[in-house]
Design a protein around this nucleic acid. Structure first.
Lengths: 221, 221
DNA sequence: TCCGTTGGGTGACATTGTCACTGACGGTGC
DNA sequence: GCACCGTCAGTGACAATGTCACCCAACGGA
């Protein structure tokens, strides 16, 4: 396992001087995870800052009753500060990070994190920015859940998951877990969309028929 | 307006060496606000870190439709990082900070904030801890709103607002704004509580009759 | 082919949110 | 005392969402 230079991949580390980066590479662990693996969670609380070198991680929160809601996604080049937050606050939490694709994760131990955020402006700015970004994400989730209609939220999410494509590959249950609602609710709304000829459905697959219509719904918030 | 030493009041600043604290006191603005004043919000976005010297600030988010939900409260000795988060992310947000009591607020400009978090371990730790704490608070709000029943949430909130006392002074509308729901919903639940002889109501005032009963409800989550 | 698993449909009902309206209470001025 | 007014709370009807129980269809092995 020859160490490779992941430091160029992140805003917070690419700007650092060479010797610091070398030190970093020594201090950190690089882990490859498979699609579907739990990167962190109640059972796996790393005392590390998580950098995502490549792949994508979905962070969601689950309730005791088995429902689930997606809080945000971590993309390649970003870090996930939530674990450090929970670590610092020493509080129980029930957020889980799941790899949505095969992914390469860089784990930076707390000691290195502390030192680096003390010594390096660029790194510290990066971390603050990461916190800020997630905070905004969470504000958005609160807003959606507390005040949003689910048809609007579902339309939005379909477009986001579709990423410009004509199709979304997802089961009703998965969509329910995106929005923190129940499968039946998603089924109903999707059937409504289908009756209005906005989409077509088949098992695990949704196809846009009238994307403009969906966009109109998603914009009516 | 002779500058006074607010720095002893905060974990992040009390530990700093005297000269640094003197510099801080010079750099910061101390503002007194009255109960009900907006400390920050869409219209008043300070590019500063907010320290709350004394009093209490309620941070809530409001929807376009006029509903509102309390995100968390800032107590004396704490800081409110949300504004710095939004500043960094340069995103629109609709969170508002309202003084719940007369309060003394210390505003630390961004430049001083940057310098201090670069140079002083104690300060940086304080800021990280503040971010973490708020993140956890927001996770809790998401959990409540997405998965919680309102009778349970209301029972919880009544106990929290009562703070050990036998009474809670709040209108139904205010309680609705706490939980992000509508006044009618609160009225219904409170009437139910009353029918079950858990509370008594009068205009703007709720009195616990069977606190244990309320606690039992609040615990059933 | 059979069969178990998964994805999805459905009706009945509970909970929560919305709307429109009503009256009750507490001040103020007379 | 009384009339007036703004705030607070109660209510019924209905819409939206969540829950439960159960069904069936599609898919993928064995």
């Amino acid at each position: 396992m020859t160490p490779f230079d992941w430091t160029e991949r992140f805003d917070g580390t690419a700007a650092l001087p060479r010797p610091v980066r070398d030190r970093l590479i020594k201090a950190a662990h690089v882990v490859k995870v498979k699609k579907g693996d739990q990167v962190f969670g109640p059972l796996r609380t790393p005392d590390s800052l998580i950098f995502l070198y490549d792949g994508r991680i979905r962070v969601s929160q689950s309730s005791d009753s088995g429902r689930e809601i997606v809080l945000y996604r971590v993309d390649a080049g970003e870090s996930c500060v939530l674990t450090t937050a929970c670590m610092l606050a020493e509080e129980a939490y029930n957020a889980v990070g799941i790899a949505e694709t095969d992914a390469t994760v860089v784990l930076l131990p707390k000691s290195a994190f502390d030192q680096l955020s003390a010594e390096e402006d660029a790194f510290r700015k990066f971390v603050f920015a990461a916190y800020s970004r997630r905070m905004i994400d969470l504000l958005r989730v609160v807003d959606d859940v507390a005040f949003g209609r689910i048809d609007v939220r579902l339309a939005e999410r379909l477009l986001a998951l579709g990423k410009g494509s004509k199709q979304v590959r997802a089961t009703h249950q998965e969509l329910a877990s995106e929005l923190g609602t129940a499968r039946e609710v998603i089924s109903r709304v999707l059937n409504d969309f289908q009756k209005r000829e906005l989409i077509e459905q088949s098992r695990g697959l949704i196809t846009f028929k009238d994307k403009v219509g969906i966009e109109r719904i998603s914009a009516s918030n």
